[in-house]
Design a protein around this nucleic acid. Structure first.
Length: 855
RNA sequence: GGGCGCGUAGCUCAGUUGGUUAGAGCGCCUGCUUCACACGCAGGAGGUCACAGGUUCGAGUCCUGUCGCGCCCACCA
């Protein structure tokens, strides 16, 4: 059979990618036999293309999924995408802006049309990319969070929560993005320590000339909306002022002095200005003391009419003016440098403004209780386990979830407002009349839901819920979730809460949390840094299998993945190695099915090694130890199959059918990690009748105790030592001809002992060495012949090197002394396991034998 | 303020319940191309496992502390 000399993945990867899809071999069916293995994809945002982090995630998923499929499990990997409300809306709004169109002018309907258009393209790109990267999903079950079916699930859950009293609408302080013009959940705000100031402002106490209360604030502009100042009831410094009032500088408003724990006597001046409309703590304090709320900053981040002469300014400009005015009036007592945490919008990085507004909230405590219980009971497990703690940490301190967004792209909130009686109707179906007053003047709430509300339902909404479908019955709960830690709270936690509440059952049994892909300098990849690795680019350059392998090698649980060009290059070399092993076999085996013959010792050995590799690979995949999978496959294929088995086969030059059979097994072992290459080569093999059409459906090699062959393992271990010795002899002899040869022969007494049991081999060593020393044989021939057992010569007599021999003897004596000391140590003997003691005994015997031989 | 993690060869990292001689890839040095593969073969150098204590017959692995680095959560103005 002909096979090209160079491995060119680009020539066959696209073909198999498409073939797998066309032949429907990843199509799942609830009717299929086998244990269930189901997994839903963390739906990528439709905002753009897949990055290398997705490829890592999809590679880990794909390895696991393909493995399960090959085990004969009823396997489903359900793909899909997320509408990603705010992110997508921003992308499309930006596009429109480039066209000179303000999206608000376009109107809601037109804008939505535009986003759907974008979604169509982007979603296709993502699907194409995934197919090209070999993801073995069932595309017939592809879902999108805004699909009609999923939207029905969203309504059902929204109404369900409402009916259970777990949903409420109200006027509260929320995080507001003045740029995105929407409320945000706590999770969508990122806090960062920022250099700022603490301004000390003196508020004169009314009726006590000369007496001031000095407040300290990081946001002086909010003073325009102050409605009180607070002191602590335990703070003796100011207690006499309780009941008095102060005069608010600049605004000339009289403010009460209240007693509240809001004021920490140890911080700043111990006096706090209270601005209930612009600070969460102050908002709470305002409720406790019934303070008026004066909004001085609007939803665009500009000062309102209530700010008096400071009205209609950007909030930061307002700050400058207020500070200047305070300074001019002498009210500004002190400015301290101060580090404070500033919250910014996750999406646009604008400083978030706490604002009072009417929003919808999910009451999370009752949901969290269940979500905690299922992890505590072990129904859901995290891998690595330490994420459990992070999960608890968040769940225990959970706060109500603001789910309404003032956006256009998303699930419209299923609530209607009656124009007559102001009744709010929450319903599954669009109502026609108000149930309270009978009016037909109903308008649907204009807000949409937080995108994570719908993705929280993903594990069951994608399977057909609220209908009781066969898929739902078969594949829920899903078996495994593989995702990143960055969405543990956003998504994983919400799925657990929603699944437990609406399915009455966990959404998945295991959550595997993978790391972050970093560049060669361990840096996070980001567009602004320009260090992103584009999966399509590197895939084209090195081959998909090679990139997958490179990712897997770094994917140790709990660690980040460093991906470098070097790693991908060496993985490509590995793929090429496999390719050429195939080429070698095909050249020798000829066409036709691999007919087995009486196994030689190396045949027995490789079967035994394959068996051991299968044991390790299966266990490693089962435990999500992807780096170990990669390492084992690498070690087995390169350093056992190629370096020893094929080399030995060259010597014996028979039984090629056995070699091809072993290779076929090796391909199956490699397939989950390197699907394209293995499919290509497997298809080129002449297979047994009855084999499936694709290697993806073939059986994954399993450990079989009957295949372990200790005798062959021992035998080949000896051969390996002997050959290694022969190689050493050649090398060292070259460096310093006769002397080195002596040194090696006497220095490696252990290897010599083994070699004596293989006289043929050692004689061959001698022959090769002598040939070299006499320079009778061509150099190349000497170097190339590694295990040429058919030549028999006498073992040469060589002279000893006294100095070296002495050194060796001393080392041996030291080793013997150490071993003896341990073996007479009663504590050691009583506590150390037998295998440790035995290995020391064996070693001692070996040392002593060597010493005796030297004498 | 709370939580999690990391510090092992020149570089990037493995090292699952403690077990005797700590590994891989890349890089480096030496030698080798008709005969599967230079995307290759063989050999080699290179580590007081951050530091200090402790537990143990035995510690890279467990405990305590120190130093350095990273990440997450948090309504101290």
């Amino acid at each position: 059979m002909q096979i090209e000399k160079v491995y060119e993945p680009q020539r066959f990867e696209p073909h198999w990618a498409q073939w797998w899809i066309n032949s429907n071999i990843f199509r799942a069916s609830p009717e299929n036999p086998g244990r269930v293995f189901s997994l839903v994809i963390p739906p990528p945002n439709v905002t753009g293309v897949l990055h290398i982090g997705h490829m890592l995630e999809h590679t880990e998923i794909d390895v696991t999924v393909r493995w399960h499929r090959m085990l004969g499990d009823n396997t489903l990997w359900l793909p899909g995408t997320d509408h990603a409300g705010i992110a997508t809306q921003m992308v499309v709004a930006r596009q429109l802006k480039e066209e000179g169109v303000n999206y608000r002018d376009l109107g809601r309907e037109k804008f939505e049309e535009r986003v759907w258009q974008w979604k169509g393209q982007s979603g296709d790109t993502i699907k194409r990319q995934m197919i090209r990267l070999g993801a073995s999903c069932d595309w017939s079950r592809e879902r999108f969070t805004l699909d009609p079916g999923l939207s029905r699930a969203v309504r059902e859950v929204f109404v369900g929560l409402y009916e259970k009293g777990l949903l409420y609408r109200g006027e509260y302080m929320v995080n507001w993005c003045p740029n995105c013009l929407t409320a945000l959940s706590d999770l969508e705000v990122t806090h960062a320590e920022t250099a700022g100031h603490l301004w000390h402002i003196a508020y004169p106490v009314n009726g006590m000339p000369g007496r001031f209360l000095t407040v300290a604030t990081t946001r002086p502009e909010t003073m325009l909306g102050d409605t009180a100042v607070a002191i602590n009831a335990k703070d003796a410094r100011y207690l006499d002022l309780h009941g008095k009032t102060v005069q608010l500088p600049l605004m000339n408003r009289e403010l009460p002095i209240i007693l509240d724990d809001l004021a920490d006597p140890t911080f700043g001046t111990g006096v706090v200005k209270v601005t209930p409309a612009h600070d969460l703590n102050d908002f709470e304090a305002g409720k406790r003391h019934n303070l008026p709320k004066i909004q001085v900053i609007d939803d665009h981040g500009r000062t309102t009419a209530a700010a008096g002469v400071y009205a209609n300014l950007d909030r930061f400009e307002a700050r400058r003016r207020v500070v200047a005015a305070l300074e001019a009036s002498g009210a500004l007592v002190k400015i301290e440098d101060y580090k404070l945490n500033v919250g910014r919008c996750d999406r646009c990085k604008t400083v978030v403004e706490p604002l009072i507004s009417t929003q919808w909230f999910v009451k999370t405590k009752p949901l969290a209780e269940k979500a905690i219980a299922v992890v505590e009971s072990g129904e859901i497990g995290f891998v690595p386990a330490n994420w459990t703690k992070t999960y608890y940490e968040w769940m225990y301190n959970i706060r109500d979830w603001c789910i309404s967004r003032q956006l256009w792209w998303g699930h419209r909130i299923p609530a209607w407002h009656c124009g007559e009686c102001k009744e709010i109707i929450v319903a599954r179906e669009t109502p026609t009349t108000c149930p309270r007053c009978g009016s037909g003047e109903l308008k649907q709430d204009t807000d949409v839901l937080d995108t994570w509300f719908s993705s929280g339902l993903w594990p069951f909404s994608t399977l057909g819920w609220p209908d009781q479908t066969a898929d739902l019955a078969k594949y829920y709960p899903t078996t495994l979730l593989i995702t990143g830690f960055d969405i543990l709270f956003f998504w994983v936690a919400r799925m657990v809460m929603m699944g437990c509440e609406f399915m009455g059952e966990i959404p998945f049994k295991t959550v595997y949390i993978h790391g972050l892909v970093r560049d060669a300098d361990r840096q996070k990849m980001s567009k602004t840094k320009g260090n992103v690795i584009d999966p399509l680019v590197v895939t084209e350059k090195y081959g998909t299998d090679a990139v997958r392998m490179a990712l897997l090698q770094g994917a140790a649980p709990g660690t980040d993945i460093v991906l470098t060009e070097e790693r991908m290059e060496s993985s490509r070399a590995f793929a090429n190695k496999i390719w050429n092993a195939a080429r070698f076999l095909f050249m020798n085996a000829g066409d036709g099915p691999a007919t087995p013959s009486e196994p030689t010792i190396e045949d027995r050995w490789i079967v035994s090694r394959l068996n051991a590799a299968a044991e390790t690979a299966n266990r490693a995949i089962e435990q999500y130890r992807y780096h170990e999978v990669a390492q084992e496959l690498w070690k087995f294929f390169w350093h056992e199959f190629c370096d020893w088995y094929l080399e030995l086969k060259k010597v014996s030059a028979t039984g090629w059918g056995n070699a091809v059979a072993a290779f076929e097994t090796a391909l199956r072992l490699l397939h989950p990690a390197m699907p394209f290459l293995t499919e290509e080569l497997w298809q080129r093999l002449e297979r047994k009748p009855g084999d499936p059409s694709s290697i993806a459906l073939a059986a994954y090699p399993q450990f079989n105790p009957a295949l372990a062959d200790p005798e062959a393992e021992r035998e080949i271990a000896v051969v390996q030592e002997v050959v290694t010795l022969a190689r050493t002899l050649r090398t060292e002899a070259r460096l310093d001809p006769k002397q080195q040869l002596q040194g090696v022969l006497y220095g490696r007494t252990g290897a010599m002992a083994i070699a004596q049991r293989h006289a043929d081999a050692i004689q061959k060593i001698a022959r090769v060495t002598l040939e070299f020393l006499s320079e009778e044989a061509p150099k190349a021939a000497v170097m190339r012949s590694t295990v040429d057992f058919d030549m028999v010569l006498d073992i040469p007599q060589v002279q000893e090197d006294p100095a070296r021999k002495q050194k060796e003897r001393e080392q041996l004596e030291k080793n013997i002394a150490n071993s003896k000391r341990q073996l007479t140590d009663e504590v050691f003997l009583s506590k150390a396991p037998a295998k440790v003691v035995d290995s020391i005994r064996a070693k001692l015997a070996d040392y002593e034998a060597q010493l005796a031989k030297m004498a």
